[in-house]
Design a protein around this nucleic acid. Sequence first.
DNA 1: CTGAAAGCGCTTACAG
DNA 2: CTGAAAGCGCTTACAG
Lengths: 352, 352
Amino acid sequence: MHVNRQNVAGENVTSSDHQRCKLVKATIKDVAREAGVSISTVSYAINNKDRISSETRKHVLHVAKRLNYVANGNAKLLKQKHTRAIGIFFNSWFGPIYSEIARGIEKAVHQAGYDLVACSLYGEENSTAYKYLRDRMVDGAIILADSFDDDFLKSTASKDLPLVVLDREVESPHIFSVLIDNFGGAFNATKALVQSGCKDVYFLGGPKGSYDSQKRLEGYIAALGFCGATINNNHILECDFTEEGAYQKMKVLFNKGTVPNAIFSANDEMALGIYRAARENNLKIPENIKVIGFDDIREAEFAAPPLTTVSHQKYEMGINAAEILFEAIKSPAKDLNKLRIQATRLIERESV
Amino acid sequence: MHVNRQNVAGENVTSSDHQRCKLVKATIKDVAREAGVSISTVSYAINNKDRISSETRKHVLHVAKRLNYVANGNAKLLKQKHTRAIGIFFNSWFGPIYSEIARGIEKAVHQAGYDLVACSLYGEENSTAYKYLRDRMVDGAIILADSFDDDFLKSTASKDLPLVVLDREVESPHIFSVLIDNFGGAFNATKALVQSGCKDVYFLGGPKGSYDSQKRLEGYIAALGFCGATINNNHILECDFTEEGAYQKMKVLFNKGTVPNAIFSANDEMALGIYRAARENNLKIPENIKVIGFDDIREAEFAAPPLTTVSHQKYEMGINAAEILFEAIKSPAKDLNKLRIQATRLIERESV
DNA sequence: CTGAAAGCGCTTACAG
DNA sequence: CTGAAAGCGCTTACAG
């Protein structure tokens, strides 16, 4: 493709500036030529350096505006090394929890004058998220995806690219964690169930590898112990954090004739699956089964009956994650707190 | 910050390769020096050009791997002009509808070998989305945000940067639309309400400027006309597409003693607000009020009673949007269809 | 098959 | 206060 650079300079052209600029982008050179100054001067003017007279600046800015000039980001980055962008990487396009966290992150990132770009892990090794991390397209990243393995994270994190993970702890000098108080939340939920008069509280967990699920299980066990209830391994069910999975699991259980008095579900999604299975078997909540979830997603409030659940501050979690990231970016040498915990709160609704 | 480039070359250094590479990124120069070839050769090897012997390639690739070399994306882009990235720009961090659309887009974008980066409009003129569009950081974009005004879109769209909008039509050679069949969906919903025996069907709309809401209103009016029902302007309520807004609106209505027999709500969110207001006033759905929503969000299914609603194929909409974008990218000259419509389907549940 | 060199669009010491 | 020039890390005609 051959481009006639003359056009940009504004010579021998009859169409309007606006039209010309759609043909080909004006560069710093074009502005310099048109304004009759050097490219350094244009650069100084654009970037508001105080080395040039305000008259020159005004003139240059005026010409730049007329030519509809905007700096080429890539060229800038090539020199400046940092991108002033933060990545947020995830594997599901924002379930109910993530979007709240993202809002918090966005707020803090924008306030710091950085850009926030979100990429998913779809495609795994070939995903945009992987690429952005490998190619250092961001100055830091917040990760909500367990499909990044710890080793990859460890090998890419550096003082120029600190990382914050939101779903586990990873031992590395430039990786930080902000986590939910899974243990405490699960403890309180289970305790509430026992104290409501149920002795055989079930636990419906997430997939085996899940850090969150593991911690919630520990809280459950601790609460049973605390209350003097016996721990029965048959009451501990492994599932997959999805509504459908929980539905299937419960259906099987009900069909065997087993109806738990109470279930602590390791997330709300699965609690919804319990609801569905119960409805189909004409089991009433909370009369026949009491259930408590975890996360306090929107559906929890609108479910019938409204779901009692463990709530955590997702927005604040996002803010927190971004803040710790910027501290790490700004003072890489400083020995920062590697781990922050978000408190939880039991929201009592009508399912227990 | 002073960086010792010697380290990268691997001279006079005792620590492992792995460690070195964390200190400073290897460049094409480092690989060339280490491999004893020119940088052109390295470039050819990395990019799999068939101008060099396979032996040389193998050797270079081996060295590159050892130095943990990855090409600098910015430098690459500076030469190549195109980014092989598609932007997806929105103003809310993915409500229930958006995430499905995003999944579709992602699938198609990844399949085309492009990257997908998501940015929000938070911060308006200073937002990342604006910047990415202005600075041509993407080869094309899909837009779900009405906060971009048409003029801005028209002035940035070009044959090198086609745009797809998902929530309106805009008259411009390089802007495409994929839209929901709002009219048809609303028509069917309203008709169902009338045919269930209600003569005074209310319409709860979105904000005045909303394209979607306007079209749904037109479908509502057409259906009433079609069924021979009279159109009463008092039955047309303006709201804001949020649960809370609808809740407030209905509360006021109920307090005045007005209880519509049937309401067609221009989205499901607002239908949920109607549910809440009804619950508080001991009004039963569908016995006292029949309601139909639009969108078929997840909550619709789990609401009590499950909400009848107009469903549209969000995932397919995403696929569609991406496909039309790539057609425009690949053959900018071709006179493509500017507009595609997604069909809708009435999902009958228990709220009517 | 390989390499020297120009150039992408910027920034930033350095010199005047 | 301003400009000429080097350089960021690549790609790609061009020459050999």
